[in-house]
């Protein structure tokens, strides 16, 4: 049984067909990368997996560890082990990042039948995570993503991934907008998270991240479908030659 099995997926947004028969299989222990032109449907796939309202599956199937994901609400998918690092993380003024992380952690644990961790113990572990991602602990007191720089938001997403320890982490352009050091930090975070029991789906425009987080498979998503798959050399070819040869 695959960790994620997407078959012939068709998705419309506001009545417009965006995904047009997408098929993708990810096994536990793997790293996959999806590349593709702007507007090809990469974030749409990520959002559909996470259960964003407004994305309608018109045909095809999505199974996660053999279970049909489609009837599940976003929080139930998270409990099942799905995680999405947002391309554009949302600001929530007035809710401190720490409060948010604790609520997420408590919910996740409650769903797994575990007791909430004590506030002190939890805060300590989050601070340690923050330090490992070069995030100033001060940012834990601020509103969720409020006034965070682009790079801080992305690292905050990685922090959440490390805290929640999902089975599948879908990282939607988490490498975009990062400086060279931050990219390295984020890549270290991903590698620290990744093990034989979980999987990573990287959505990226740049081959650079793939030097640090080595993918088992690289896919080209264009016009709502996966048109090409290969190993990491495919990413290098795309970087050198662009997408024209795939979409032609």
């Amino acid at each position: 049984m695959s960790l994620l099995q997407v078959d012939d997926l068709h998705v419309t947004v506001d009545g417009k067909l965006i995904l047009k028969g997408l098929t993708l299989t990810i096994e536990a222990g793997e790293v996959h990368a999806i590349m593709g032109p702007n507007g090809s449907g990469k974030s749409t796939l990520a959002n559909v997996l996470a259960g964003r309202p407004g994305f309608e599956i018109t045909s095809g199937t999505v199974n996660f560890e053999g279970v049909d994901l489609t009837p599940l609400e976003p929080h139930q998918r998270a409990h099942a082990g799905m995680f999405l690092a947002f391309q554009y993380p949302i600001e929530i003024p007035g809710v401190s990042n720490m409060e948010f992380l604790k609520a997420a952690n408590d919910s996740q644990r409650a769903a797994a039948g575990l007791e909430a961790r004590s506030a002190v113990e939890f805060m300590k572990s989050v601070r340690t995570l923050a330090e490992s991602l070069d995030l100033n602990p001060d940012f834990l007191k601020r509103g969720v993503n409020e006034g965070f720089s682009g790079g801080e938001r992305k690292r905050n997403e990685i922090l959440q991934m490390l805290m929640l320890e999902p089975k599948l982490a879908v990282l939607d352009e988490t490498d975009s907008g990062l400086d060279i050091d931050a990219l390295q930090t984020v890549a270290n975070g991903i590698n620290r998270y990744h093990n034989s029991g979980n999987a990573v789906l990287l959505i990226t425009h740049y081959q650079r991240l793939l030097n640090y987080v080595v993918p088992d498979q690289v896919h080209v998503l264009a016009d709502g479908r996966i048109l090409e798959s290969g190993d990491r050399r495919l990413a290098e070819k795309l970087e050198a030659e662009g997408y024209a040869w795939v979409t032609a």
Binding site: A50, G51, F86, I92, P93, G94, A103, S107
Partner: peptide, 25 residues
């Protein structure tokens, strides 16, 4: 924001409460 909180495993009633708290805070 509700979707963001939901995607972190926070169930809808708690997500709504958090947003209200944030709004007044």
């Amino acid at each position: 924001a509700l979707f963001y909180l939901g995607s972190r495993g926070i169930e809808p009633s708690l997500a709504k409460r958090l947003l209200c708290i944030g709004f007044i805070t």
